[in-house]
Amino acid sequence: MNLPSRKQLSPMRDFIVSRGVSGAVSLLLVTFLVFVGTALLPGDTASALLGQNATPEALAALRRDLGLDQPLLLRYLGWFAHAVRGDFGTSLASGRAVSEVLLPRLGNSLLLASVAAVFLLPVAVGGGIAAAIWQDSWFDRLLGFTSMLFLAMPAFLVGYILIYVFAVRMGWFPSMSVAPFFGGAAAWINILALPVISLVIIGQAHTMKLTRTAILAVLATDYVLMAEVKGISRRRIILRHALPNALSAILSISILTVAYLIVDVVVIEMVFSYPGLGKLMVDSVSYRDLTVVQACGLLFALIFIGMNFLADFLALLVNPRQREPARGA
C-alpha cells in the first residue's frame, strides 16, 4: 500500500547514496594519491626533518620511529584509521598534536568565511537579480564591467589596494591581523573588516554573473513568454514567476560561493597575516611540516566536497524535477 510514497522518496535516496558514495570515493582517492605521491618521490619525512647532513643511522632510526619502514598500504590504512577519528598525528615542526594546532585555526577561518558570506550573498545575489531585471541597462553594463575587472584581478591585488587605501592612507584599520584575539567585538570588527571586504569584492563577481545567467535562463522559458503576452509587468514576472523557479539554482550558487570563499581565504589570510587554516597550511608547506599539510589539505577538501554535495542536495530538494543536478563549475 505504501509503495507509491516509497517510490516518491527514492530519487532523493538514490541521490544521497550515489553522491555520498562518489564524494567519499573522491576523498579516498585524493588521500591515497597524496599518500602514494609522498612515497614515490625522492626524500621522505625523515630526510625532510633531519636535513641534508643526517647520518644514515639517524635516518633509519627516525624512519623506524615514524613507522616509515612499514609497507605503503599499511601506512596508508594506519593514517586513515587515525584520521577518521580526528587524530592526524603530531606536527613535525612543533611536536604538538596536529588536531590541537588545527582546531583554533579552523575556527578562525570559518569565522572569516562566514562573516564574508553574510555580506557577500545578499550583495551578489541581489546584484545579479537586479542586473537580470534591468538587462542591458547602464546598471547591467556597469556590473558586467566591474565583474570582468574583478575576475581578472589576483586576489592579493584587491587585498593590497584595500590595505593601501584604508590602512595606510586613512589609518582606519590595521594592515595586519596581528592584534591579540581579545578585547571584545570592537577588536574583532577591526581585525575582520579588511579581510572580509576583500573576500566580498573577490567573490561577488562570479556569484553575480551566475545569478544573472540563472534568472535570464528562466526568463527564456515559454511560461515567461506567456506571462509577457498576457501583459504582466517585467518586474512582476521576475519576482512572481521567474524567481521561484530560479530559486534552486540560486541556492546552489550561494552554497558554491561559500565553498569558493573558503578557498579564497587561503590567499587573503596570507595578505593580512590572519591566523587561519589557510595561513597555517601555507606556513607548514614552507617548514615541510607534512603531517599538518596533509591534515589541512584533507580538511579543505572535506569542506569543499561537502559544500558541493550540499549545493546539489538543496537544489534537488527545492526543485524535485531536477533529478540530474547540475555540477558546480
Binding site: 562518489s22 573522491s26 594519491l33 569558493y260 597550511m281 608547506v285 599539510v293 589539505g297
Partner: peptide, 18 residues
Amino acid sequence: DAIMSVPQIIFALVVLAV
C-alpha cells in the same frame, strides 16, 4: 572527478609540500 573535487590551490600546496 577526484582531482577536480579538491580546490586546485589546496591540491597544489599538498603536492608541492611533498
